[in-house]
């Protein structure tokens, strides 16, 4: 039963991710597209963890760990540290 549930959940999460990617196409802003990267990160981690259990491959958990650490760095790299851009658009 569990052996069936795990792959089914992986497929469900993949479909979910595909649906979320509609947002990339629709936009309308760059921030909206960045949201899909967030969705991609959190979904991929869940998929990797489920696969680790299903295929009895604990090493995949380490891959998920790496992914989740990259997720934070990706958005930092994309938008820069908050202090760097503090002079544009904050005079209110």
């Amino acid at each position: 039963m569990i052996e069936l549930l795990l792959p089914a959940l992986v497929i469900f999460l993949l479909l979910n991710l595909a649906a979320g990617m509609v947002r990339v196409a629709r936009g309308p802003t760059a921030a909206d597209r960045m949201l899909s990267a967030l969705l991609f990160g959190s979904t991929t981690v869940a998929i990797l963890l489920i696969l680790a259990q299903w295929m009895n491959e604990p090493a995949l958990r380490n891959v998920a760990l790496l992914f989740v650490m990259l997720a934070a760095i990706v958005s930092l790299a994309f938008f820069g540290m908050p202090r760097d851009d503090a002079d544009d658009g904050e005079q209110r």
Binding site: A31, M34, L35, L38, G41, S42, V45, L65, V68, M69, A71, A72, V74, S75, L76, F78, F79, P82
Partner: peptide, 13 residues
């Protein structure tokens, strides 16, 4: 770590 990544990304976006 996922939690941390989510808050940081959300704030930056």
């Amino acid at each position: 770590l996922g939690l941390l990544a989510a808050t940081v990304s959300a704030h930056l976006i």
